[in-house]
Amino acid sequence: MTSSNNSTPEPVSVDMRKSRQEKYDILIEGLAEDLYRFACWICRDRVQAEELVQETYLRAWKSIDSLRDAASAKAWLFTILRREYARQFERKRLQVQDVDDMGELPAGKIGFDTSTEAFVLRQALARLPEDYREPLVLQVLGGFSCDEIAETLGISSSAVMTRLFRSRKQMRELLGEDAVRRNGMGA
């Protein structure tokens, strides 16, 4: 079933016969924005997010010869970004754990929509267990298929589908979506 998922945007096409620099440029032009938005979500800070994206690309440059399959370029870059984040910011994240627990998002600082509805949505998302939240963000924000998410997270596609199912179910519960529909209060 996962292979039938067609929700991803236009895939980035990397011609593997091109030179290192050409391949690298395509990866930047095609994926830097998606990476930046994902980095903003996990770092919750624009400056750190940009730093993380730049580090990710530097690492990608160093190991671009190991990228053999053009179709997996996006998942490959996101995997590097996640590892780089874990390496660089894990200590910092632990230090600000209290703030994260409180659900405080420096929305204005990041440039997020500051409306009440958007705030409530982000807080609901922040309250999901990390195992459920990350696949959902990768799918909704990054446009990844289940197979790509599986590759990025290093788990099976069926496990990804289970997590996505549970994450959306929990989001609907947290936001009262099902209750609203049941009570006929929704649009």
Binding site: Y36, R46, E50, V53, Q54, F112, D113, E117, L125, L141
Partner: peptide, 17 residues
């Protein structure tokens, strides 16, 4: 959710990378 998470990307991000 996508709209709530969408942030403006700096114009010169690619150049800076």
């Amino acid at each position: 959710i996508e709209n709530a998470l969408r942030v403006p990307v700096p114009d010169d991000l690619a150049a800076r990378i």
